[in-house]
Design a protein around this nucleic acid. Structure first.
Lengths: 131, 131
DNA sequence: GTACGTGCAAACGTTTTGCAGCGGG
DNA sequence: CCCGCTGCAAAACGTTTGCACGTAC
């Protein structure tokens, strides 16, 4: 499926910036990027989107379920192209985020939930660093 | 142990703002508060610290290991008075954070770590909401 | 022509910082 | 007396928004 088709199926127009960002994000390898990193990459590719438009584009991709946002610390948000349920490994020294497949961790036990409430999501970040 | 002693043992001077914040935070019940919430509470108690000083105080408490910072979404950071290893339950509807005791969840399996790297921390947030 | 994508600048919420002044050991 | 806490203001940072312009269908 072409990137253009991906956008169309998601119900958003395949405009220049969206195509350029999608071509980078959906090149076959899972990615974790910040808006700033993506801006730098698009600039190398002679696209010169404004920061605001890039934020809009990322948010739009999130809204239609093409990517998801990962918030780590106070800093910039990460966007993750892997939409399958999974967890994260964060390399503190490198400031790099990596996927942990769902089946690599097993969580047993459930905390007491208030009645009428249900689990929306389970976020797990394993933070590692050099010894 | 008095709050004053707690601060002294942590190696920081028990000044007015620090005492007032510590008296609130360490009253015996575990707490999760944002800086803004703490400011409101201290104001009710006739303390009128500046926002900047309150940030400094929270950061100082973090630095000496009296509390720890929990970052959830892009918004304001939470400070947690429970220093024992544990996980978190986040009530999305109420915007409220709650502790999950360490033994309520069991995690088995370890992701592949790069050699020479070790786990610094495991952050787990279970997000719940009304059905 | 209309709807919407885009760029720019400004506003926003949170947090940090620089600096002058005050106050406690 | 001196170190360092405090307050204020400004700036920094990531992000969002308002608005005018452009562009594609």
């Amino acid at each position: 499926m072409t990137v253009r088709e991906t956008l169309q199926r998601a119900g958003i127009q395949p405009t220049r910036i969206r195509l350029a960002l999608a071509e980078y994000l959906f090149d076959g390898t899972d990615k974790h990027v910040t808006v700033q990193q993506a801006l730098d990459i698009l600039r190398e590719r002679r696209m010169l989107p404004s920061l605001a438009s890039l934020y809009n584009t990322f948010n739009e991709f999130c809204r239609v379920g093409l990517i998801r946002k990962v918030t780590l610390d106070g800093g910039a948000a990460w966007f993750d192209t892997n939409m399958a349920p999974h967890y994260h490994l964060y390399h503190e020294d490198e400031g790099r985020l990596e996927d942990i497949p769902l089946d690599a961790l097993k969580i047993t036990g459930r905390p007491q939930l208030p009645r009428g409430a249900s689990v929306r999501r389970i976020d797990i970040v394993i933070r590692v660093g050099r010894d």
